[in-house]
Amino acid sequence: MAKPLTTEQVGTLAQAAGLRVSTDDLPEVTVRVNAFLVGLAPLDELPLDSVQPIPALPLPDEA
């Protein structure tokens, strides 16, 4: 698994995205970004190759 992102790296990412992240917010934003990367890592083990990313299925009367 890749090393966790540092606060400096997350701050740089935010700057590139045009987001203002205060020094108060940066530690928790970093925790949250890393939590997503770790928490969603198990998705790599799932058989997703043939799965379509469909947010909502057609409703039954429209199918």
Binding site: D25, R32, V33, L40, L43, L46, L48, V51, P53
Partner: peptide, 17 residues
């Protein structure tokens, strides 16, 4: 703010999941 920094490819994978 954290969600705004997630890679788009990861979001795509999330929708597949």
């Amino acid at each position: 703010l954290a969600a705004s920094l997630l890679p788009v490819a990861l979001y795509y994978k999330v929708e597949q999941a």
